[in-house]
């Protein structure tokens, strides 16, 4: 019952975890082109959204090793030597650039009112916030919205497709891959150059720290935990939270009925 409803620190982190991973994914970009849908099938999978579970589990293990031997040590060093206000500044800077994507996707999804606010947010933080280093707009009450091309594709009716764990990039879906490609192409951070992109990666990993620790603490099966929370979280974003009271809860009701009356065969 408990894990999701944890105290703010770990809770916020866990909710932001998918966001960070997608951000990381959109930065290293074109690698995702390599991992198309031609993957060996594994039909024993329990979740219909995850027909390639065998492949995905292997990739998940590979990514975890890369993370613990390379990404985590570097990220820990970054977190240790960099003062907090600087880490926040770096985070704000890349987050502000991402708002170019947010505005674009607001428009593509016909969310004009939200688009206007996000444009204001981008303008305010770029000017008064000194190029995005300070999140001034938050103090005005304009919170960060989360929109990307994968959500736009969802709004346009493109089905989610299979769950995929991409090498180095982490969790995605068949719909998430073209989404990430568009996101990377639209994000100004992509065109700044190598050292900045490395910093961006570092920033993404450092911000995922709390979430990854949370998964480590809470998950009995980290692969399944990551997959389920990622898919549910993306689904919730794509539908702007409208799904939870209909599909999710009604399914649950059916589940309850069958589980309270065990079928004897």
């Amino acid at each position: 019952m408990v894990i999701r409803s944890s105290q703010t620190g770990s809770l916020k982190n866990s909710l932001q975890f998918a966001r960070r991973l997608t951000l990381a994914a959109s930065i290293v970009t074109l690698l995702s082109g390599c991992a198309t849908t031609e993957l060996a099938g594994n039909n024993n999978a329990a979740n219909p959204d995850d027909p390639y579970e065998g492949f995905n589990r292997t990739m998940f293990g590979f990514n975890n090793s890369v993370d613990s031997y390379v990404a985590k040590p570097i990220s820990d060093a970054y977190r240790w030597i960099t003062p907090d206000f600087m880490q926040t500044g770096v985070y704000n800077f890349f987050n502000n650039l991402k708002n170019v994507n947010v505005v674009l996707n607001d428009v593509l999804q016909a969310k004009f009112e939200q688009g206007a606010q996000d444009t204001g947010r981008l303008a305010l933080n770029t000017t008064l916030g000194l190029g995005g280093l300070f999140d001034v707009a938050k103090n005005v009450g304009w919170h960060q919205n989360d929109e990307d091309f994968e959500q736009t594709l969802a709004v346009w009716g493109v089905p989610q497709g299979s769950y995929l764990v991409l090498p180095l990039l982490g969790p995605s879906t068949a719909r998430g891959i073209p989404g990430s490609v568009f996101d990377t192409a639209a994000n100004p951070a992509t065109y700044i150059g190598m050292p900045v992109q490395l910093l961006s990666l570092l920033n993404s990993r450092a911000n995922a720290e709390g979430a990854l620790k949370f998964i480590d603490e809470a998950a009995l099966d980290p692969y399944v935990f990551t997959r389920e929370s990622f898919l549910q979280w993306r689904n919730n974003l794509a539908t702007d939270g409208r799904m939870d009271s209909s599909a999710n809860l009604l399914d649950l009701d059916d589940e309850l009925e069958t589980s309270t009356k065990p079928i004897k065969e």
């Binding site: 019952m1 408990v2 894990i3 999701r4 409803s5 809770l11 909710l15 935990f225 389920e228 929370s229 549910q232 979280w233 689904n235 919730n236 974003l237 939270g241 799904m243 939870d244 999710n248 809860l249 399914d251 649950l252």
Partner: peptide
């Protein structure tokens, strides 16, 4: 069940 920002604890 508790559903936090659309993530269902029970389903997970």
């Amino acid at each position: 069940n508790i559903i936090a920002n659309g993530v269902s604890d029970l389903a997970l």
